[in-house]
């Protein structure tokens, strides 16, 4: 039975609310009226389609995709891998996954980032790939460093990799952040804590995956991404009506 109906309603109590007093930037950027609930139509269940012509296989290797030939980025070498699934636990194949991150010292290659940790000349900080037919993806990169940010006087972001995923319908569009197992900064971070549910927070922490490390070369973390699932068209829930 193919999934051809609407996407399941988003559980807005599982996501962070728009207004989070402790995350100061959200205060003036959070809509205050209720969202208008909208049932899916064709523009919601469809979304952009990407193919291998859009990207380069090298784009998934952040250790080398900005490095001078023969050189590589500085830092703890990691593989970040996992699957993109939907809420029905089915793989989401052929979908674009994009990541961006600070370097091993916690510095972004961005003109607005003035943190004193140095730029790594061999590290750009972004990568992208398309999931295979089983929804599987992987990147090679370096583990990003923690960095300070202006929220409280002394606020530090836990090490994290930003991730953007599409899915097949525009309402699945999602941006999140991947944290790393064992990081003591995770429970202190106001952005992490914008998520009200501890179980939801745990689902953003990538697990050390010893079985996927490359011995003497690269350590591995596993991170599965879950996008909204779709109804199957069992009875009367066809979008077009009758």
């Amino acid at each position: 039975m193919p999934d051809q109906g609407e996407f399941y309603q988003r559980d807005r109590d599982w996501h962070p609310p728009a207004y989070v007093k402790e995350y100061k930037t959200s205060v003036a950027r959070s809509p205050q009226y209720s969202l208008i609930s909208l049932q899916n139509s064709v523009g919601e269940i469809t979304g952009p389609v990407f193919g291998h012509n859009d990207i380069d296989p090298m784009d998934r290797d952040l250790i080398h995709n900005y490095a001078t030939a023969g050189e590589s980025a500085i830092g703890e070498r990691i593989i970040l891998h996992g699957r993109v699934l939907d809420e029905n636990a089915r793989p989401v194949p052929n979908t674009l996954v994009e990541i961006w991150q600070a370097n091993a010292g916690g510095r972004y290659r961005h003109k607005k980032d003035t943190y004193l940790a140095p730029i790594d000349p061999n590290f750009g900080g972004c990568g992208r790939t398309i999931t295979d037919e089983n929804g599987y993806y992987y990147f090679r990169t370096v583990k990003p460093g923690a960095y300070p940010w202006r929220n409280y006087v002394n606020s530090w972001r836990p090490a994290h990799i930003h991730v953007s995923v599409f899915g097949s319908g525009f309402v699945q569009r999602l941006i999140s952040q991947i944290y790393f197992e064992g990081d003591p900064l995770i429970p202190l971070c106001p952005i992490v804590k914008s998520i009200p549910n501890q179980e939801a927070i745990n689902s953003l922490v990538a697990a050390l995956d010893m079985n996927s490390t490359i011995p003497l070369d690269t350590i591995a973390y596993k991170f599965d991404i879950v996008l909204r699932g779709r109804r199957s068209t069992l009875f009367e829930n066809r979008l077009e009506g009758n």
Partner: peptide, 23 residues
């Protein structure tokens, strides 16, 4: 059923990841 991955802000450096050329 699985739960959707919870969202986090795109942050100030979203350009690096999603629009590096434009930035």
């Amino acid at each position: 059923y699985l739960k959707e991955t919870p969202s986090q802000t795109a942050g100030p450096y979203v350009h690096i990841g999603l629009a590096p050329g434009a930035a």
